[in-house]
Design a protein around this nucleic acid. Structure first.
Lengths: 129, 129
DNA sequence: AGTATCGTACGATGACTGTCGTACGTCAAG
DNA sequence: CTTGACGTACGACAGTCATCGTACGATACT
């Protein structure tokens, strides 16, 4: 019973993961320094979040030195995908298509952005056979 | 200070809302009957969720009869949009475009689905000035 | 009228989140 | 060696969620 359900990072955890994705393996102090610019929390709060994420296997830790080095155990893409699937499941009856349609219909995306999306879509249409 | 933060429906609340969106205004008993097919919970749990959602203004209630009639105060589209924006904010730095690209790049959407998306995208491109 | 059924209100509980503060060990500088 | 700065562990706590059970009023059946 080590992993019952597939857990997803919480809001606060995501903010920490973001730092790790950008900065790469870091000490708690380093993470805290960067994180502080976005939101003010105590050092031990960041530490706690990292400990929790370690329990959940979201981060790895290298404790060979006194100041442990934490690194993300999930890629950003992977995490985005998981969270998208979760949302699709919960709110779009599992349909990614519906999710995309809704996102497009309400997005204030620029023409350039839409073009970019259309382009990727064209490729995707040809590739996936 | 009635509404501090914009609240979003939780997972359990969404399941109830889904029933309301499909079935329209209903009594707790009716909602419970339908909801039961998906997940087994006690009648009072459904009632509790509806009471909480009423406090949060997610549902309206007509208590003119003994059995109160609940109805959704948010449309499904509205809710989908809000949750998408929330996810975009939390995980895609606010970029709906990035969200869509990610969703497309990992979706196992069929050709027909992709075509449909592309179509809507073409319209959208022309419409939005 | 008396009782069983249906309905709502609401307290209690356990899990999880996010946040701190304190305890306590280590390491370097005086 | 002593002490102060730094590091991790961890208990505490308040808020939210999801779930029940119990209390109690209203309705309907006999």
């Amino acid at each position: 019973m080590s992993k019952k359900v597939e857990r997803l990072p919480t809001a606060a955890e995501l903010k920490i993961l973001k730092v790790l994705w950008e900065a790469g393996p870091s000490t708690v102090r380093e993470i805290h320094e960067i994180h502080k610019k976005e939101k003010t929390v105590r050092y031990t709060t960041v530490l706690r979040l990292l400990q929790n994420m370690h329990d959940k296997n979201f981060v790895r830790r290298d404790d060979s030195e006194r100041s442990h080095i934490f690194s993300a155990n999930l890629t950003e893409e992977e995490t985005q995908t998981k969270l998208l699937r979760d949302l699709a499941e919960r709110v779009f009856s599992g349909s990614t298509k519906q999710l995309v349609l809704r996102a497009l219909s309400t997005s204030r995306a620029s023409k350039a952005e839409l073009a970019e999306i259309r382009e990727l879509l064209a490729e995707s249409t040809h590739e996936s056979g």
